[in-house]
């Protein structure tokens, strides 16, 4: 694999506790998960984290998000707009962008690290099908639909393709 190649990996992870947990616990869990993931993704070979970013929408509104950009720095975590104090289940959308990390390896590491954290925290983890994006669209036009996982071939980044654009039709 080209050491500079970027094979984006994404997953939706459902975490479930037997009882509702304060949001501070959720934040600590996701911070520990992102932190461990950062180390695991860069453990072998010369790899560089672009970012490992996760977002969980909170029940009733608001979100919990986190970003890990280097194994040497803790993840940056934020809770915003929360209306509930606690919950028993959250879904974490995760994008893993690590230069030099093959997609297949990311697909192995993420569930492994997630399961280890779930065990440590007394939670259950389920890896869900990914939402299928529908291209460019505005907020007012709705969001993507949920369907079968998109397993299209990995793309190489940064871009090495020639720019392509189409002339709009003349009025």
């Amino acid at each position: 694999m080209d050491p500079l190649a970027l094979e984006p990996y994404a997953a939706r992870l459902r975490w479930r506790f037997p009882e509702a947990q304060p949001l501070a616990n959720w934040q600590a869990l996701f911070a520990a998960f992102l932190d461990e993931l950062g180390w695991a993704c860069t453990a072998a070979g010369r790899r560089v984290i672009g970012h490992i970013k996760g977002l969980a929408l909170l029940p009733g509104g608001g979100f919990l998000c986190g970003s890990k950009v280097s194994p040497h720095y803790p993840p940056d975590m934020e809770i915003s707009g929360a209306t509930a104090d606690s919950c028993a289940e959250l879904e974490l959308d995760l994008n893993v962008l690590v230069f030099g990390l093959p997609l297949s390896e990311a697909g192995r590491i993420v569930p492994e690290v997630g399961q280890a954290q779930a065990l440590r925290w007394g939670a259950e983890l389920e890896v869900l099908a990914l939402p299928v994006p529908s291209g460019a669209e505005g907020s007012e036009a709705g969001s993507f639909s949920v369907g079968a996982p998109d397993r299209s071939p990995a793309r190489a980044w940064p871009c090495r393709r020639s720019p392509r654009w189409v002339r709009p039709r003349a009025c």
Partner: peptide, 13 residues
């Protein structure tokens, strides 16, 4: 990049 748009979800929130 990636199959899940995270930033756009965050901004919509």
């Amino acid at each position: 990049i990636g199959e899940i748009g995270i930033d756009d979800q965050l901004m919509r929130q």
